[in-house]
Lab assay of single mutants.
Amino acid sequence: MDALKSAGRALIRSPSLAKQSWGGGGRHRKLPENWTDTRETLLEGMLFSLKYLGMTLVEQPKGEELSAAAIKRIVATAKASGKKLQKVTLKVSPRGIILTDNLTNQLIENVSIYRISYCTADKMHDKVFAYIAQSQHNQSLECHAFLCTKRKMAQAVTLTVAQAFKVAFEFWQVSKEEKEKRDKASQEGGDVLGARQDCTPPLKSLVATGNLLDLEETAKAPLSTVSANTTNMDEVPRPQALSGSSVVWELDDGLDEAFSRLAQSRTNPQVLDTGLTAQDMHYAQCLSPVDWDKPDSSGTEQDDLFSF
């Protein structure tokens, strides 16, 4: 819950932080000083300027060897085509990944977070970031790969997607708890209302004896509580940590079903599988986004697919 609360507080303090972009060759504004600060901008989305290598189908939802083989196929196909790589912007948030063309600003792909089953910074092609997700059109699994400016960037994108998945799962947990509370309150309110109706004398007997209905007592009954809980029953509950912020979080049926399955089948359902080692994760978390744009010590960066 700490990640969720800190993310909400950060967004309320400075929503404009989320509009910064990394990996864009110096076009961005001043960047936060450390990885923790940038992680807090996830709610509205972190932007990464990358190059799209392509996509291939895979048979399993996750796995280092599986993704490595898929990336190898994608890279080989991209090299064989001889075409310049498409420059894209990857927007990562707890909602998922939005992929747009840098030149036309046209939407290429919009992947809900619950469809993503794996992401990684490839070991062999260490400047490549990739994720595996279920197609929104059918049940097939797709591996999408992107060329980053350097290994640090690939690791940073991988960690960002993993963190977005974690925050999304926490949102789901909060929403589920809130819905259970509202359902319980609604049920209790309905029981109270039913009890009051059972003990209320029939209207005919009131008229016969000349008694008047006590409207004041009726007004004191917990009807307002019942209506408050039943009027918006169809509205999706939102985490309290975000009250007053500009973010509107809505959970669709697909996300609810997917996270429910994860909660039942996995020990740590909030953790998205990645190909990063503990050492890689520690190294990337210690980086400032400013470091992502620094040239690798191995030599001059080449803006070309064939540089790796």
Rank of each mutant, 00 (worst) to 15 (best):
D122Y: 00
E44G: 06
P202A: 07
I132V: 04
A278L: 10
I116D: 00
V157N: 00
L42V: 14
T56M: 12
T209F: 04
L31F: 15
S205F: 02
L99T: 14
Q86D: 05
N229C: 07
L43C: 11
A221I: 07
I74K: 00
S175E: 01
S6W: 10
L85Y: 01
L66S: 07
K84M: 06
S288F: 03
V157E: 00
S21T: 07
Q173D: 03
R95P: 06
D256Q: 04
N211H: 06
T209C: 05
K51W: 01
K62W: 03
S246V: 13
D280F: 02
F129C: 08
Q136L: 10
T218S: 05
A18R: 15
V236Q: 14
T277C: 08
I12Y: 10
A68F: 03
A145I: 01
E65S: 05
Q285S: 13
L42E: 09
V157Y: 00
K176T: 10
A18Y: 04
D280V: 08
S6Y: 14
Q240N: 14
V161T: 12
E250K: 10
M124P: 00
L42M: 13
E59H: 09
T56A: 04
S112I: 12
Q264T: 04
Q302S: 06
Y118L: 03
Q106T: 15
E178R: 12
Q187P: 09
Q173C: 09
M124V: 08
Y52G: 02
T274A: 03
P269V: 02
A185R: 15
V157Q: 00
L47M: 07
F306A: 06
A185N: 10
Q270W: 02
W249M: 13
L272T: 09
R39Q: 03
S140N: 13
Q240V: 04
D293R: 03
H282V: 06
Q270G: 05
E235D: 07
Y283E: 04
D304L: 05
L262A: 02
P201W: 03
A78M: 02
K181M: 09
K176G: 05
E257S: 05
D234S: 08
S224A: 04
K204W: 05
E44V: 14
P222R: 14
G194V: 09
Q173K: 11
K83F: 06
D304M: 09
V271I: 12
F306G: 03
D293Y: 06
F48K: 00
M124Y: 05
K294E: 08
D183V: 15
T225M: 13
I98D: 04
S205E: 09
V167P: 03
I113V: 12
K166W: 12
L287D: 07
A162I: 05
S67Q: 06
G210P: 12
F169A: 02
Y131L: 01
S135R: 14
E170P: 03
S140M: 10
Q264N: 08
P201F: 02
A195D: 04
K5R: 12
T158K: 05
Q187E: 05
K184C: 08
Q155N: 11
V192W: 02
H28I: 13
S16K: 05
K181R: 15
K176W: 04
M153G: 15
W292Y: 11
L107N: 01
V128S: 00
S67G: 13
P201Y: 03
T218F: 06
L276W: 05
A154E: 00
G45Q: 09
T218D: 04
G254C: 13
E216L: 04
A221K: 05
P222K: 11
V247Y: 11
S265I: 06
Q264L: 07
A76S: 08
L31W: 09
L4M: 14
N34R: 12
E65T: 15
G54W: 01
D37E: 15
L99H: 13
G299N: 05
Y131E: 00
G244W: 07
V128N: 01
V111W: 09
E216A: 08
D2R: 02
A130Q: 00
L107T: 10
F129A: 05
K83A: 09
D2M: 04
L107V: 11
Q285P: 04
T158Q: 02
H137Q: 15
A3I: 09
V92W: 01
E109R: 11
Q285F: 10
S14W: 01
S117P: 05
A154N: 00
T38Q: 13
I98V: 15
F165R: 02
D214F: 04
K181F: 13
V75R: 00
Q270F: 04
Q20I: 10
P237R: 15
A3Q: 10
L103T: 08
E142S: 01
A78R: 09
A76K: 04
K19Q: 11
A10F: 05
Q155A: 05
D256T: 04
A76W: 02
V167Y: 15
T77R: 09
G45K: 01
N105R: 07
D126F: 00
Y118V: 03
T77M: 03
S135H: 14
V75W: 00
E65C: 08
